[in-house]
């Protein structure tokens, strides 16, 4: 039987130049439920579908506030995400303390990128099994970053990670032109529609399983932009939004039966404790 000899640790290259453990960590991200992020000129929105391991259990949180001006959405191992989120919270507090300003998003993402990269180059360590979307605003405006277990980070206009996220990405690609000038409300609608694309056939967005998070800039006291702190919308706060997209969705009539992608990801709560 074929056995892969190059996946015993996260520091050894295969002869094809791959590091399998990192790729496997990437798979963990794909098993987490889908999260979407979209940036406009003034706001960034994070959108997530929460999963419950079983009927009786509660829904696992997907969006976390890091500081008043930044937040993350997670897909993958929640426990690994908690380590990263605690680290990011500490860095943001420390930065505020020493410089008296919010941590620039690029700097923050750079720090977790570096932290994750170390895990791929030091023997005996394991890559983080979680992918993040980091949303935030700083003096250069709103930003959305993608973070992968490999330590890769990249700025995005809009992105989705997690199970069946390809559908959401396709939706985002189709609408990319419209995001920049979106209002908050329009951003939410795009976000929720993208989420819907990635749902399994008989699953719906409900007030229980949907999370929306928004952070942005607003008009400050003397005409200068000031931070509109991150706000998380859960439960009934999302009701109207969900209803509004369920109607318009019917109008657009996009119900293609997406076949692939379902195979690996669809199963709820299989094997490993993966996100949610």
């Amino acid at each position: 039987m074929f056995r892969n000899n190059y996946d015993n640790d996260s520091v050894t290259f295969s002869p094809q130049g791959r590091i399998f453990q990192i790729e496997y960590a990437g798979e963990a991200v794909k098993q987490g439920s889908v999260v979407v992020g979209i940036a406009s000129k003034t706001h960034v929105g994070l959108f997530a579908v929460k999963r419950n391991a079983e009927e009786l259990s509660s829904y696992q949180k997907k969006l976390f506030e890091i500081d008043e001006h930044t937040a993350i959405a997670i897909a993958g191992l929640t426990s690994d995400a908690r380590v990263l989120s605690n680290f990011m919270k500490q860095q943001c507090l420390g930065h505020r303390l020493t410089y008296g300003r919010p941590m620039p998003i690029h700097t923050l993402v750079g720090q977790i990128g570096e932290k994750a990269q170390i895990n791929t180059q030091v023997y005996g360590k394991r890559p983080y099994g979680v992918g993040l979307l980091v949303a935030g605003v700083d003096e250069n405006g709103p930003h959305l970053f993608e973070f992968q277990p490999s330590g890769m980070t990249e700025e995005m206009v809009a992105f989705a990670i997690g199970a069946r996220s390809q559908m959401a990405r396709t939706y985002l690609e189709r609408n990319i032109e419209s995001f920049a000038d979106c209002s908050k409300e329009e951003l939410v609608k795009h976000g929720l529609r993208a989420l819907k694309e990635s749902l399994v056939q008989d699953k719906e967005l409900t007030v229980e399983n949907t999370s929306v998070g928004l952070v942005g800039l607003k008009e400050g006291p003397n005409g200068r932009p000031s931070v509109e702190p991150f706000k998380l919308y859960d439960g009934f706060e999302t009701k109207e939004w969900i209803e509004s997209v369920s109607e318009s969705q019917g109008g657009e009539g996009e119900g293609e039966g997406e076949g692939e992608g379902e195979t690996a990801a669809a199963g709820d709560g299989d094997g490993m404790e993966v996100d949610s």
């Binding site: 020493t98 410089y99 008296g100 620039p104 690029h106 250069n140």
Partner: peptide, 20 residues
């Protein structure tokens, strides 16, 4: 290096940093 386009540490930030 982080932000080549415009300076981001303003005088207030700098003062806080130095006082710390």
């Amino acid at each position: 290096y982080e932000s080549p386009d415009k300076p981001r540490l303003n005088a207030a930030n700098l003062h806080r940093y130095l006082s710390k």
